[in-house]
Design a protein around this nucleic acid. Structure first.
Lengths: 345, 345
DNA sequence: GTTAGCACTCACTCTCTCCGAGTGCTAACA
DNA sequence: TGTTAGCACTCGGAGAGAGTGAGTGCTAAC
């Protein structure tokens, strides 16, 4: 059933008042504060309808109404007005991202602080994952006897390295030979291309250094398949500014959840991947136990079609969605700019 | 003034009861629960003395006594009994550290979870810093045109890398030449050894590649001097299990502090560096504003005399010091073992 | 269809009282 | 002289009860 325009106006007023005050909204207040040209009694009738339709709920009989999940959902999808950031906000944001970054790690870990500072909610950032990436080059660097560093560069321009140890002696020139052998044989390949058969052939060709090769190739595979999303969290304490978390048990639940990067990563991975739009999960939509009264807003960033990641915030369902969405959009744009530059693309 | 043995026993009883219950301790309870052979009245007199001497304080007239900072300090220095972990605790600890670690980063970030799980307090871990380290080798790996990866290995066995871009073309063999030139010229040098004069000489010798060299050398210097302690935090939510943090403002203060790695790093760096012992700062001893009712317990770990770092916990001043100290000792031992193995020393 | 009016509900706050744990002091005891 | 029993006093916290006010639903009039 469609909502009449009047119902929409009233619903919007309720959602926005509730977001601003965290108090259940009563009919009189709406009549007073919003110039709808309706009396409290009329609004009361409409509110009763909206409640029957599932958009509003009552904490108890003699309080005002608060939006239900459905109410928020409708607000976010159909009623929410674009928030335009003030000049001050924009210049503050630009200033805080105006550093020269030279490491992927540095950008990503700092971006979470920026997000939480701008939105005043806890921020979550997923380290970029690679998408169908291929090996660009592999290098072995001898660190000391029986210990070497493997450096893998993927075609997304991401560098990964790991120290490995092996038995058997090998000297500088031999390791260089192994190094270029591997690089030549793996360059341009994706994880799917490195079949056991192909690896086998390589082991045989290398003879003495087969063991070393084995270790290197398994690390290369790891690099290409890596998908345990590394996650950064910033400004978690911001959640305590919201009265719904002034109950200590509620707060503990939240912080226990955030203590586990794994949890957070899993939650992020459940958010929409495909589109450029911002995706929003309200309350139980996230499907995470114990997070029924938080909402998550996430934007996807990508560099070319190779590197992909997510930035977002977690807040109470009663969240300033409009502000959050436009802040995330701005930050996302700036982030992509920085990453593009850094990746030299 | 020395404390009589009787006063010591009473002080110890009070501290331990208060640690266990978080309730002010009254004279009757001590008489009942501890077999001191004294009546409540006598204990009362001694408690009044202890209060006069500054070891105890009263939250209000008709409550029991709680230890003052001085009281805790005396307890920690002189009264605390060694806690022996149970077989279950030890085997649990060993199991949780029984993974095969292959990256420094991985060990360090995971150790904070282990500590918080074992102690039930928020854990802080400082990434190892290098001490007077020297260059072992430097490698340049060409990633694409005008972009290379610098890999620096220090004599502590730590690997650092950074992507750099430069103007001017350079091919694989040329970059190898530059790479081995740099490595040869910097190997064995510490930050102090790489004087501007020496760098100048190198620039000149390299001619065309002077610019590239400049970038590389400045990165090498960074690696050797790096001392912005990276910090990992685990199990922060554990703080909420302590009733002194059930006040939401107190909790917010704590979490805001922990939100800033910088804060935490600064605090850690103020803790004792020199000795092998565990260092404990009680309440305001830490000198950090807003952390007057938390204590910090920190152990130093080191691998040889090169790598040094800290592991520790932050908890309420009313903390189970005995348990925390022995847990940290055990974890520290195990950590050092793992690091030694990993660094191949 | 809209509005004014009115009875009713219910969380919250404030006040008051009671209770119990704990203290300090005094006097008696070993 | 050190220890203990006894007692009056203090004070936070829990619980009961009354009052308040924001809000609702329903009815009747416009």
């Amino acid at each position: 059933m469609e909502l009449s325009q009047r119902k929409c106006m009233i619903l919007q007023a309720i959602v926005e008042d509730y977001i601003a005050t965290a108090e259940p909204v009563g009919s009189r207040n709406i009549a007073k504060n919003h110039d709808l040209g309706l009396s409290a009694a009329t609004i009361r009738n409409e509110m009763a309808d909206l409640e029957d339709m599932g958009y509003l709920e009552k904490p108890h009989t003699s309080a005002g109404r608060i939006p239900s999940e459905l109410g928020y959902r409708f607000y976010v999808d159909s009623l929410m007005q674009r928030y335009s950031m003030t000049v001050d906000e924009i210049s503050g944001l630009q200033k805080s991202m105006d550093r020269k970054y030279d490491q992927l790690e540095g950008v990503i870990s700092e971006i979470s602080d920026v997000i939480s500072k701008v939105t005043k909610y806890p921020a979550v950032v997923a380290f970029p994952r690679e998408n169908k990436s291929r090996v660009r080059s592999v290098r072995l660097v001898l660190i000391e006897e029986r210990m070497a560093l493997v450096v893998v560069v993927t075609d997304a321009g991401v560098v990964k390295n790991r120290r490995i140890s092996f038995s058997g002696d090998i000297d500088y020139s031999a390791i260089d030979a192994v190094s270029s052998f591997i690089s030549k044989n793996l360059a341009g390949l994706s994880a799917a291309d490195i079949t056991p058969a192909r690896a086998m052939l390589m082991y045989e060709a290398m003879g003495d250094y087969g063991e070393l090769l084995k270790i290197v190739i398994s690390f290369v595979m790891e690099c290409l398949q890596e998908d345990c999303a590394r996650v950064y969290i910033g400004g978690a304490s911001n959640i305590l500014n919201n009265p719904e978390f002034s109950d200590i048990d509620r707060a503990r639940e939240f912080f226990s959840f955030m203590d586990s990067r794994e949890n957070v990563g899993k939650m992020l991975s459940l958010m929409g991947n495909d589109n450029d739009d911002i995706s929003i999960k309200i309350g139980s939509e996230s499907g995470v136990d114990g997070m029924e009264d938080t909402s998550i807003v996430v934007a996807n960033y990508h560099v070319g079609d190779k590197l992909r990641g997510k930035i977002g915030i977690i807040g109470p369902t009663r969240m300033d969605y409009a502000r959050v969405v436009s802040s995330l959009e701005m930050i996302n744009d700036r982030l992509v700019e920085i990453l593009n530059k850094m990746m030299g693309q």
